[in-house]
Amino acid sequence: MKAQKTSRTAQYMAFFRALETKRNQKDRLFSDPYAIHFVDSKLRLAVRLSQYSVFSKYINHTINKKIPGALSSGIARTKYIDELLKTAVSNGVEQVIILGAGFDTRAVRLDFLKSIPVIEIDHPNTSNFKAEIYKKRIGRIPENVTFLQIDFNKQNLDQLAAENNLDFSKPTAVIWEGVTNYLTEEAVKSTFSFISKLPKTVTSYLLMCIKKYSKILNYF
Rank of each mutant, 00 (worst) to 15 (best):
R106H: 03
S53Y: 11
S56T: 02
V108P: 08
K42S: 13
V89L: 03
A70N: 07
D40M: 02
Q51T: 13
R106C: 06
I98E: 04
V47N: 08
D111I: 00
S72H: 09
I98V: 15
N64H: 14
D40Q: 10
S90Y: 00
G69I: 11
K57I: 08
T62K: 15
Y58V: 13
L99P: 08
F103S: 12
I81T: 11
S50M: 14
A76Q: 08
V89A: 03
S53P: 03
A101L: 01
G102R: 00
A70E: 04
N91G: 01
L85P: 08
G92Y: 03
R44N: 15
L45Q: 09
H37T: 04
S73V: 14
A70R: 02
I98H: 08
R109W: 09
S41D: 09
R106Y: 04
G69K: 13
K42V: 12
R109C: 05
G102T: 02
S72W: 06
S56H: 14
V47A: 09
T87W: 03
G74Y: 01
I81H: 01
K79D: 12
I63N: 02
L113F: 08
K42A: 10
I97S: 11
N60R: 06
V89P: 00
I97E: 06
I63Q: 07
K66A: 11
I97V: 13
L110A: 02
V108H: 08
A46W: 15
L84P: 00
S56C: 12
L99A: 07
T87P: 00
L43Y: 10
Y58G: 03
V108E: 15
F55N: 12
G92V: 07
V108R: 05
S90H: 05
K57Y: 05
A88R: 07
